[in-house]
């Protein structure tokens, strides 16, 4: 192994690490605000990449119908609750989001010509998939929001399994790869950096800075942080935990889908790729103790680089290296941090 190879491997590791970093941040965010260990995070990556690929092939992606179905179901739940004397405030707005929006989007997709610029396709992909986040919270997590972490985890596993199954139905068993955002190539010594890799790293960095600004400067971001620290306290201050949950899931879905769109040109994505990517993001999130954003992001880069180097040295044991990393991390964390009993 010489310096050139080490540099190429590091470059590769940073590119994949950037995506893991985004997922790790989303996982930390969701856990902090809602106490959900969000296993389906990776599925958003796969759905994002494959929906984009289907749009590029001029097909209407099946995820659109998932959005419509989930919207109608959520509207039914809200409607039944209102009829039973529940709150009627905001029912019209909620109907607009759950029923009118998906149908309008479907009409738009059918009316539009099949060939679009890559930016329009990316925007459509986000428009279809991001609303799945809050709808998922509404349908699956909101009814058990006060449950224990274990109950929420079990719900996550159930959603993960159903999303993988639906993915197979929507996209088929074979993988897809989309054309790159830019064909630019930069040569730095032995390194060849593709435009797409720059896109991934820059977009990840921009998103991380954006999230930091959101949490540090905006009122909603502060409210989310408050909810993460003390749910009841935030509620007493007039910030609805249901709204906090939905907002968190919007962000998580957005991060996941964007990661999918970004890496789709770099590798082949299958309907079940998401789980493994999500798990690696999870390893990074664990390194950050499911609490610290910067440590999780750094951990993600570590996971990416470790993965890339171990695939060079011992490709048969690559995953073993990555997932074994979690053991020393857990030992170290349990030695250095105080254990707080979690009573539900």
């Amino acid at each position: 192994m010489d310096l050139d190879i080490a540099l190429i491997l590091t470059q590769d590791g940073i590119t994949t690490g950037a995506v893991y970093a985004l997922l790790a941040i989303a996982l930390v965010l969701v856990f902090a605000v809602t106490r959900v260990i969000f296993i389906p995070q990776g599925e958003y990556v796969a759905y994002g990449a494959l929906t984009m690929a289907m749009l590029q092939q001029g097909k209407v992606p099946g995820t659109l119908w998932l959005l419509v179905a989930m919207g109608v179901f959520a509207a039914l739940l809200d409607g039944v609750r209102a009829m039973r004397g529940g709150p009627r405030v905001g029912l019209a707005a909620s109907l607009g989001w759950t029923v009118a929006y998906p149908l309008a989007l479907a009409a738009l997709l059918y009316a539009m010509p099949a060939t679009q610029s890559i930016i329009v396709q990316a925007a459509l992909t986000l428009a279809i998939l991001v609303p799945l986040g809050p709808l998922m919270y509404r349908l699956a997590y909101q009814p058990v929001a006060e449950g224990s972490v274990l109950v929420l985890l079990i719900v996550s596993v159930a959603i993960h399994v159903s999303m993988v199954g639906l993915g197979l139905l929507f996209f088929g068993a074979e993988g897809s790869r989309t054309p790159a955002f830019s064909d630019a190539q930069f040569s730095v010594g032995a390194l060849t950096i593709s435009g797409q890799q720059v896109w991934v790293v820059v977009a990840s960095a921009a998103l991380i800075v954006g999230l930091w600004l959101f949490f540090d400067r905006s009122l909603y971001g502060k409210a989310l942080r408050a909810t993460a620290i003390n749910r009841n306290g935030a509620r007493l201050m007039g910030f609805s935990p249901v709204f906090a949950g939905k907002l968190t899931f919007v962000l998580a879905a957005f991060i996941g889908v964007l990661s999918g769109i970004l890496i789709a040109p770099l590798t082949t994505i299958y309907y079940d790729t998401g789980f493994l990517i999500g798990l690696k993001g999870f390893v990074a999130a664990i390194i950050g103790g499911l609490a610290s954003y910067p440590i999780a992001a750094a951990g993600a880069l570590l996971v990416g680089v470790l993965e890339s180097f171990s695939s060079f040295w011992a490709s048969a044991y690559k995953e073993v290296f990555v997932f074994t990393l979690i053991i020393p991390v857990l030992v170290w964390r349990s030695l250095t941090s105080h254990h707080i009993e979690e009573d539900e």
Binding site: L9, F309, S311, F312, W313, K318
Partner: peptide
Amino acid sequence: ERYARNDTSVSGQVLK
């Protein structure tokens, strides 16, 4: 060299 079906990168193996 080895890789898995849904690996996202085989750069290391390819380099070697």
